[in-house]
Design a protein around this nucleic acid. Structure first.
Length: 856
RNA sequence: GCGAAAGUGGCGGAAUUGGUAGACGCGCGAGACUUAGGAUCUCGUGGGCUCGCCCGUGGGGGUUCGAGUCCCCCCUUUCGCACCA
């Protein structure tokens, strides 16, 4: 039976996978979902099922998560490890268009292929509780979620300048615009003004930021969110208006109407941010500044070209120039608009306002370097102390005044560039001599007393635009009626099923493909039964993924999105592992949705992920993997050749999991040799039944300790190295091995190589597998304990230094005293030669480590 | 420009309350064995030489008995953010 004794990974893995499927080893039954005593929700970011199949990067991510889940399971937890498919969205749709297959055919095919691949990796997914975001049974609840936010006033429709991708022909979220280009296709993004649905995530900016201080997440991810939310402290300051002499506004005339007509032909007059509604009242322009201390240095004001007060401030002489400039700015795509290296442009409006500090009149300009989307869309320009304002003032010969002086500087020290350093105020009346930090508070207080300003905190975060003028997404469940306005689809009528449309191509009109399907969008108004029309936009795919983790435990229920008891049992997610590329997109939205649901009383926690850890990225032979380079690792081939166990173990070994590493074909032989040797030890060579030998016992305990601690900290590479080291010691010199010496190792290796471990476990005569069907009571505890006393060696290698240089190593019993160590050191020939009869001036003794003799 | 992380043998990477630099693996060299297996086993493998030392963790300073680890300056790389007032 020699065949029986050869390590045939592929056959053996298929055997165990079949058994897991048959015995539902990894599926939780309803009772377990409801009652689990020690629940552990082990979540990984669900994949987008591309046509290319599972990428090695996916497997890397998933394996790291699966190792952790298996480890927790061996410690007795009931581990819920779900997987699903994030299959809506522009990416799928674009690909479907490209190959000419309808997404409703393409996506199920991709999902099937992904499922096959995922099963082959040996991860312990619960295939009875998966989600597919494109299935009506899932997006019914995505639509339901929208309705809950709508009812709570957190969803609103507003006309707004949005990022428009001419390539994908759709609106993009700010997060999907990378350096002014479409994240997906790289086309420069343009500005358009469309009526869109927004979620008021900015209402949660403060909480989203503050909770970052206590959630247990990878530091870099928290930092990325912190930057994205972008809190800045400063002041809101009101500058009284001085209207242009020649302006055609008669006293008492309603300027607002005029503003409206001025705006409409140029650009929308709505602010993007829900909170930026304060551009000033009839008599003031408001600005936000982080440097209220430089108020007296504000020598002019700059408004965004889209600012609603521009029309009113513009004088007749300047009107034409202003209009031309505004038109140009509106037409400009956002790449060009936001390029920082281009020369500043701008136009004087002819209008003025009063600097409330100096009481002097200052001119009001418009320029595209001021963005309507941030703050109030207007700035007080302080050219003396701001680089951008300095550049602008220099170009247009506007006055530059110094109001902060550093050491050895005074009011006469010329400014060759904006001064941003530390210093004291000058040219600022009663605030002269004050340190600028102090002046910030003092001037803000002074303004507050006069009702000309107040302290203000501003966030960079924008509201979340969820409308997409595309086909492949869940229709937004709103109906428009001439009489009733926007009416939510009654919950009983959900889902609003996405119809099968043959021509789902987007077009440049900015109107969704669904708007061409009259029989679909024509409906009766749910309120008045009159003729009405459905919303024809679909929602952003980030909405699908913002709540999927809530769905998993309740995935088998069709009467509610997430059932209370299950939710309480399994959420918040205990461990979430995923890529850093989702630091500010998915992870922020998921947090927002969770907070909103909690405020609505639908769940009882406000942070969705107790622990989040990012995984690193895999490169191939030192280079980024890409199709164009032709160096993409196709996992199927490797798994077929080497087995899933070797592939998994190698992926976890090639570098620190949280940092990624370099995939090298030759590298696979290392872990493969290790697993083969383990196999040989158990199966091919006779094992004795002696207890663990003395030195090995210490090594075994040290290994258990190391592997346990390393898996806890996701340091998989060093955990594997420790196991290799141990196995090498067990087999050293071809010695007779004992069953007692390898049995524990099989358990330690099982999170990485579960198939092999089960097979060896069985061959050692165990009737029950390591991973048994999970129950509410938990799992059998297999993970070994270690004895801390036995995990340390009795003998240490002790080092003797002379003047900090290594001169001798000697084996010493643990706990050797300084005197004994010194005696031994002085007996060493080499040490004696180094000392050369010199006077020992100082002795440093580190117990069980070293002795350092310092001589003159 | 701002922020974050990182620079260690031929290669992937170990080691930081400051205490033996290079664990483990790949590759390479020498040998053994053969049930020919992506074998296995043994020994070696940072550089240099006068064989006892010297040099060595991107570069340069510093603190210390002792620095890959701490401090200062600089260089390089990667990843975020980027006219955010």
């Amino acid at each position: 039976m020699s065949e029986d004794r050869t390590y045939r990974a592929s056959e053996l893995e298929k055997k165990w996978q079949a058994r897991w499927a048959e015995e539902r080893t990894n599926s939780l039954d309803e009772e377990t979902l409801l009652e689990a005593d020690k629940p552990f929700h082990n979540l990984m970011m669900f994949p987008y099922p591309s046509a290319e199949g599972l990428h090695v990067g996916n497997i890397y991510a998933f394996t790291g998560a699966d190792v952790y889940g298996r480890y927790m399971r061996l410690r007795g937890h009931t581990v819920f490890e779900p997987i699903g498919f994030d299959a809506f969205g522009i990416h799928s749709e674009n690909f479907a268009l490209k190959i000419g297959t309808h997404p409703m055919e393409l996506i199920p095919r991709n999902i099937e292929n992904f499922t096959r691949q995922l099963k082959r990796t040996g991860a312990m997914y619960d295939w009875d509780h998966t989600v597919d975001t494109t299935h009506p049974s899932y997006y019914k609840w995505t639509q339901w979620l929208f309705l809950q936010l709508y009812k709570a006033g957190l969803a609103e429709k507003k006309e707004a300048p949005v990022n428009w991708c001419p390539g994908c022909q759709t609106v993009l979220a700010n997060e999907q615009v990378v350096a002014g280009e479409c994240e997906r296709c790289g086309t420069p993004v343009e500005q358009r003004f469309l009526s869109q649905w927004f979620f008021r995530i900015t209402d949660y900016a403060r909480r989203l930021l503050e909770n970052l201080s206590w959630i247990d997440w990878s530091d870099t991810t928290r930092k990325a969110q912190e930057n994205w939310i972008g809190r800045s402290e400063g002041a809101l300051i009101r500058f009284p208006l001085r209207e242009p002499e020649a302006a055609s506004y008669a006293e008492g005339a309603g300027p607002a109407q005029d503003v409206g007509t001025q705006q409409s032909d140029v650009a929308g007059d709505q602010p993007t941010s829900a909170r930026a509604t304060r551009n000033g009242d009839a008599n003031h322009i408001e600005v936000f500044t982080t440097r209220p201390d430089t108020l007296f240095g504000a020598t002019f004001m700059v408004l965004a070209p889209e600012h609603p007060l521009v029309g009113r401030l513009t004088s007749d002489e300047q009107r034409q120039a202003v209009e031309v400039y505004r038109r140009r700015a509106a037409a400009m795509d956002l790449v060009a608009r936001k390029k920082t290296d281009k020369e500043k442009t701008g136009v004087f409006t002819g209008g003025h306002c009063i600097n409330p500090g100096t009481g002097k009149e200052i001119p009001v300009w418009i320029a595209d370097y001021v963005l309507m989307e941030y703050g109030t869309g207007a700035i007080m320009a302080v050219p003396g102390h701001d680089d951008r304002d300095f550049e602008f003032a220099t170009k247009f010969a506007l006055p530059i005044v110094r109001v902060v002086a550093g050491v050895d500087e005074d009011g006469l020290t010329p400014l060759e560039q904006a001064y941003l350093g530390d210093g004291e105020l000058l040219n600022s009346d009663q605030f002269n001599g004050m340190h600028w930090q102090e002046a910030k508070k003092a001037i803000t207080r002074w303004l507050t007393d006069r009702n000309l300003g107040e302290e203000q905190v501003n966030y960079r975060l924008h509201d979340w635009c969820i409308s997409r003028q595309r086909y492949w997404g869940p229709p937004i469940p709103i109906i428009y009626c001439a009489g009733c306005g926007a009416v939510p689809v009654p919950e009983d009528d959900l889902p609003v099923v996405l119809p099968h449309v043959d021509d789902y191509r987007p077009d440049a009109s900015g109107v969704s493909p669904l708007a061409r399907v009259e029989e679909w969008y024509r409906v009766d108004c749910p309120a008045c039964s009159g003729p009405a029309r459905r919303e024809t936009d679909v929602s952003d795919t980030f909405l699908d993924s913002s709540w999927y983790f809530l769905r998993y435990p309740s995935a088998s229920l069709d009467d509610q999105a997430f059932e209370e008891q299950r939710t309480q049992r399994w959420l918040p997610v205990h461990m979430y592992i995923g890529g850093e590329e989702h630091s500010v997109l998915h992870l922020l939205y998921a947090r927002f949705i969770t907070m909103a649901l909690r405020d609505l009383g639908l769940i009882s926690f406000e942070e969705p992920f107790q622990r989040f850890r990012k995984h690193g990225l895999i490169i191939k032979e030192g280079a980024k993997m890409s199709k164009s380079r032709g160096n993409v690792v196709v996992p199927d081939d490797y798994i077929e050749d080497w087995g899933a166990d070797t592939f998994r173990t190698y992926l976890m070994f090639l570098g620190p999991y949280q940092e990624g590493g370099d995939f090298r074909d030759q590298g696979l032989t290392g872990p493969h040799g290790f697993l083969s040797r383990l196999w040989d030890t158990v199966v091919r060579s006779p094992m004795g039944d002696e207890p663990v030998s003395g030195t090995l016992e210490q090594k075994l305990h040290a290994t258990i300790k190391k592997v346990t601690e390393d898996i806890d900290g996701l340091s998989y590479n060093t955990a594997i190295a420790a196991m290799m080291e141990y196995l090498n010691a067990v087999r050293e010199g071809g010695r007779q091995t004992n069953r007692s010496e390898v049995e524990t190792l099989i358990i330690l290796v099982s999170p990485f190589a579960p198939h092999l471990a089960e097979e060896l476990w069985q061959r050692l005569g165990h009737e029950q597998p390591l991973f048994t069907r999970q129950t509410a009571a938990g799992n059998p505890v297999h993970w070994p304990e270690y004895d801390p006393d036995r995990a340390t060696a009795d003998t240490v290698e002790f080092v003797v230094q002379v003047n900090g240089k290594l001169r001798a190593r000697m084996a010493m019993p643990r706990g050797t005293s300084e005197d004994q160590a010194r005696e031994a050191a002085l007996a060493d020939e080499n040490v004696r030669r180094q000392l050369d009869g010199k006077q020992i001036q100082k002795v440093i003794f580190v117990p069980d480590r070293l002795l350092n003799l310092v001589v003159a």
